[in-house]
Nucleic acid binder design. Structure first.
Lengths: 363, 363
DNA sequence: CTGAAAGCGCTTACAG
DNA sequence: CTGAAAGCGCTTACAG
């Protein structure tokens, strides 16, 4: 039917056409293609051979229209697409694959983060469940809470991964995350135990956008100082300089470089806590450019435990996220919810591991 | 209809039900939801309000079954999921969004790289086109060529991004890629111009798997040496030690550490070319662990031009991939092919830019 | 083991 | 501007 002068591709074969070719009913083709037991093996093999020969693939849209069960999970990532989320994604894919599910990733821009977007994605793909990888929401607290409530109305199992649910007092969604606060608390204590008192924090976000990992990490930092009898100096929370990329090398660098430029004589800290390993690398470069040696003149810690922390010179002391465990728990919670949609909301906080590097020195 | 004692979620609303609620025909609801002009604005608004109120979202499977046109592009990534591909992906998404297309990413394991997988993905999602990001195929040359032919039979526009088509003499697919060979050729000349003669290459893959960027980069390295009158020493092509992650820090590190361990007295090179920036970082650590300073005692260059090259200390001289241009060309070629499926195959090679860092010293 | 038929939820000529 | 009807390509009772 294809007109050679036109640009259109040949039409795809339908079950009906294949049935005609094989001289059987469409129902028989359907059974053969789905490997059902109620079809003669010889018939099945003949049909499948013809299908392969003609490149017939069942139309999934038509199939989905009939079938209620689905074996697809949608992973939605909003905004920053860093190495950490990518690694979590890889583990998630493996876990879901083990359970017989396929995984599809949709990356959406910040401004598209709405309940409608999710609803469209979910119904478009007939997904069995949704994982929000990284946060999902806007910088505005009230808008985020409302979004969370709207999401709860969508009748599909969902779980937040690497971020808690920020719905407010009553959590509306399950979540699995590293224990950000405790992790940074431990890191700060690690520094304090080595004599540091003037510790700066690199990578604090916008005041209005407190619903993100950085805020929990900052809270852990403050708590550790306070518990150690050190009065947190608000000036040592270095403001972010690359707002859209809080956890990036660029932000770590700009933030510290800016501070050092404004305080040429006395930088005012003996140790730096970066909100992420990437930010730590940027901070290290800024220190180096100012002639400050790590760790001899300034200690440095990161967060995440990515390859870069391990291979950087000096190796960066960091809080290693338990990526495999996070992915495993996320998959478990989601698949449990798929099986029992009314099961209770579950908040899972997984303790990270302090990975000692070569970037901290006693003072 | 939902049984409160069962775990099933309430059924989703259909167009029929909404039509009944609004007291109109389903066709009118359809027109309202699709913003068609042939519906009374007042009727449309009333219907849309009811839809929003009841959380009605059209079933996309049913819609796709009727509609032939699609506005979705599938991006397929096989195997390694590094920072470079992620950044290309982000640019691709933006380009496609500008053209009115949504992008969906599917990440598949090496062993699943078959024509059937692609066919299933394509028909499942009714995608308008497919981008293969990174290579797609197996390590076996003959199997790859056959796969390429099978892919060509799938009647959907496709383009390879960041990798050429390895079908053999006659390319069967369009591709957009940095000019790997010329890029490394330039980097090698950069080193040669600074007096280096003993240059090692880090990150060569398996002999049987020559269909990958590393092989083109290795070829550029060899050509530059030969053209400069230097006989390439095959021993200076350091074998890979982490096969599945050729471009990783782990591989760069293991490869160089292993070599230095076996040649404690004379390492045999004055400069190192790494297959990627990440491998360069790993190599730098291995050098450091052996007490070899970069660049004073050994020069180092990478490939890709990622953040890490720019923020590492010392800043790594590298070949910056023109990521935006690669994404732009990929989107252009694919969308052109969507419009005119019979258009000619196109191989696009984009020249990278040598970004000079602080990791090369004259000898 | 196989076939004829109903129907999943939409869209789109066609008629009014 | 609105409605009744056909049909997209499948799956699945139901009948044989």
């Amino acid at each position: 039917m294809a007109d050679p002068t036109s640009g259109s591709a040949p039409a795809e074969m339908s079950i009906r056409e294949l049935a005609r070719i094989c001289g059987v009913a469409v129902s028989t083709v359907s059974r053969a293609m789905n490997d059902r037991s109620d079809v003669n093996p010889a018939t099945r093999d003949r049909i499948r051979a013809e299908a392969a020969k003609h490149g017939y693939v069942p139309n999934a849209s038509a199939r989905r229209l009939k079938i209620s069960t689905t074996t697809s999970i949608s992973v939605i990532i909003q905004g920053e697409l860093g190495q950490l989320l990518i690694e979590v994604l890889e583990h998630l894919e493996r876990r879901f694959a083990d359970a017989g599910y396929e995984t599809t990733l949709t990356h959406i821009a910040d401004r598209q983060a709405s309940a409608e977007t999710v609803q469209r994605i979910v119904r478009a793909g007939k997904f069995g469940g949704v994982v929000f990888l990284g946060r999902y929401g806007s910088a505005d607290r009230e808008a985020s809470a409302q979004l969370s409530r709207r999401l709860a109305e969508i009748q599909v199992p969902m779980v937040f991964c690497t971020t808690p649910d920020y719905s407010g007092a009553d959590a509306l969604h399950s979540s699995v995350s590293v224990d950000d606060r405790t992790g940074v608390y431990e890191l700060a204590n690690h520094l304090i135990a080595r004599g540091h008192r003037r510790i700066a924090f690199v990578g604090a976000g916008d005041q209005h956008d407190r619903e993100h990992a950085w805020a929990l990490r900052l809270a852990g930092y403050r708590a550790a100082l306070t518990d150690a009898g050190i009065d947190p100096d608000p000036r040592l929370v270095l403001p972010s300089r690359v707002p859209g990329q809080l956890y990036s090398m660029a932000n770590g660098h700009a933030s510290v470089a800016n501070w050092l430029g404004e305080h040429p004589d006395d930088r005012g800290f003996t140790a730096l806590m970066a909100v992420s390993d990437a930010a730590a690398v940027g901070a290290a470069r800024a220190l180096n450019e100012a002639g400050v040696r790590v760790p001899d003149e300034c200690s440095l810690v990161g967060f995440d435990g990515l390859d870069i922390a391990n291979y950087y010179v000096p190796r960066i002391t960091t809080l290693a996220q338990p990526i495999a465990e996070i992915a495993e728990s996320t998959a478990r919670v989601l698949l449990d919810t798929v099986k029992s949609p009314r099961r209770a909301i579950e908040q899972v906080w997984i303790r990270g591991r302090l990975a000692e590097g070569e970037s901290v020195r006693e003072v």
